[in-house]
Design a protein around this nucleic acid. Structure first.
Lengths: 197, 197, 197, 197
DNA sequence: AATGAATGAGAGTTCATTCAT
DNA sequence: GATGAATGAACTCTCATTCAT
């Protein structure tokens, strides 16, 4: 790959965005280079000016997503010193941050979370990061002590993943709404509080 | 497709199982008819003796999974008249039934839940069935009245889906263990009960 | 590559022959699979039923040539116990055998001797075999003792190679004629015998 | 192609040399313009500033070689009036001149003698020139009268060609050594002189 | 004199699918 | 009931070449 000026960078970016949309729409195997370049307003060889192969372009998108989401999750850590009421809002804010990232680039999210074979590894990594956050928050006394952090992290991720797919990406709910619903369920469980033994 | 004798039925079944395993292993597009028939110990034209096309075979597997899972979910409904302690066990049993179905045929589960484009529709259907169960159970007074049944159904499904993938299919946990963990989280939430406001 | 019946073997052979002719005519890079299969009366995918790739088919032809020529050279060894007059005829017969092999399949010869990058290695091998023959023949007292066998082998090969290209393959001379001419030059050199010092 | 200043001439030359080396290394079809310009420290369009096409550049190299070699062969003619001892040295000198030219620019030699499709025509021309030299030298009484000049010319060329490839270009022998060996073989043949009938 | 950017044309290869037996 | 043999239709990727600057 040779040196690129401004125009080249622009073309590359256009191709990357076109690729993201095509991949998100049709999946990796059904996406043809011809569709990508058509969407970007270029011809097929231009694609290979900027990417090694179809796989490489896909991998770059996946990596972008992975980095972005990892960062968002790391940033969503809740610091110490919150009282019960503040905690609730902090948790909502934390979740909202993650949902917001996932909603920002729907095509990328679809690729990284549902389409890529690497999604398994990505989710494992994300679950791990969430677990670390949760452990520290648990040590801060925010959650019950007998909570299995990794198990909870997996469940949290599962719910975020699914709600993103069915509510966030189609635009049925906002990050803020989803954050609040998610927090509510996890905080209080499903039992009727009056009757708790 | 004409009528088949015993040998034909056997071959058809072998092909279907081989297809399930290949699809589960490599996904739809990367699975070649040649691999399927090789695994089944037959030749390519034999495949077309029993299936219209690659798509048709895949669709049949998906349909099998969908029917099985729907039934399992319907069967997992919890009847009225349980007290608090019985309820807990009933919920665990109900969840266990679902996990057990999902663990029974890993290849099929992988196809129906993660690989098929139809998985979206399947999950929507399953979520709907779960919602109906939950509503009735809620009306029986088992859960808090302000619980949003469809939201909860989606979360439940999300967790089942993820735990199936990372715990059940790799054999790290049994249906019974998963059922208990899932029930516990949902019943009590994550907060420390002493401190609940 | 699966099992082949008689028809398959026939097709494979037809493709191999077609490939040899196309390669000999146009060289490796300018030969298109489409030309080969057209000449063989088949379609492109059929080619891949019998050969891994264009390279593989070429390599097979080269290997065939190499084996054949090696054998011919080994067979051309001259045994002991010849007197001067018999020797001459034996040398001619020996050379004729080699020329005859080279003339038998012109396309293959062109590929193995001039077109293939492996031709360098092939000629090195052939020169080595010739050297061995020559050393034994020299020990039998047939040639001058101060003759450098490997040098002579290389020269002999050089001449055979060139005469094959310009005389044998175009059909200007027969193996027999070429053998006699070659023998004559090497036996007596170029000087006028009366004047030899 | 327009007139060029000093810088342009320099670039053109650099490209030509780079092309020669790349062609010699990889052959015509496997040599990419991109490799040539990379070696010359320029970009692809620059190549087309100086050459019509890849073919044209190659052809120019071949023509350079052909002219040079023709001249060298013409210059290697041996004049009349030599006695037997002088003749030997004259022949050696003559051969050395040719080997020296071939060794001077290895890349060009490889192209003109082994890689170019035109090499056939070039060798035919060279053989013709050699034949003329030989005929005159034969008429001067230097060689046996029954020698077939064109046949001998072809053999001489064959040997020069092969020894150049395997001894001269890899640097195993010098032009002088090769000239002497070649002369020795042709002068005296391979038979033991004591036993000549 | 030289380059960043782009393209037309084509090649090899793959794969689901079918036919004749 | 099954197979050896063959193919139509694509698709990815490469490369010489050119245009605008």
């Amino acid at each position: 790959m040779r040196k690129q000026g401004a125009i080249g960078k622009e073309s590359r970016l256009r191709l990357l965005e076109a690729a993201a949309e095509e991949f998100a729409l049709s999946g990796f195997y059904q996406t043809k280079i011809s569709s990508i370049v058509a969407r970007a307003g270029l011809t097929q060889p231009a694609f290979y000016l900027y990417f090694e192969s179809k796989e490489a372009a896909f991998a770059e998108l996946v990596a972008d997503f992975r980095n972005g989401l990892s960062q968002a999750v790391r940033d969503s850590h809740i610091g110490p010193g919150k009282n019960r009421e503040d905690l609730k809002e902090a948790v909502v804010a934390s979740l909202e941050q993650i949902y917001r990232f996932l909603g920002r680039n729907p095509a990328l999210t679809r690729i990284g979370l549902y389409l890529s074979p690497e999604s398994v590894g990505i989710k494992a990594e994300i679950a791990g990061l969430m677990e670390q956050n949760l452990i520290e928050e648990q040590q801060a006394g925010y959650y019950r002590q007998d909570l299995d952090a990794i198990f909870f992290a997996e469940c949290l991720l599962a719910i975020i993943e699914r709600l993103t797919l069915i509510k966030l990406l189609p635009g049925h709910e906002t990050p803020s709404q989803l954050a609040r619903q998610t927090q509510d369920l996890f905080f209080y469980g499903i039992l009727d509080m009056q009757q708790r033994s």
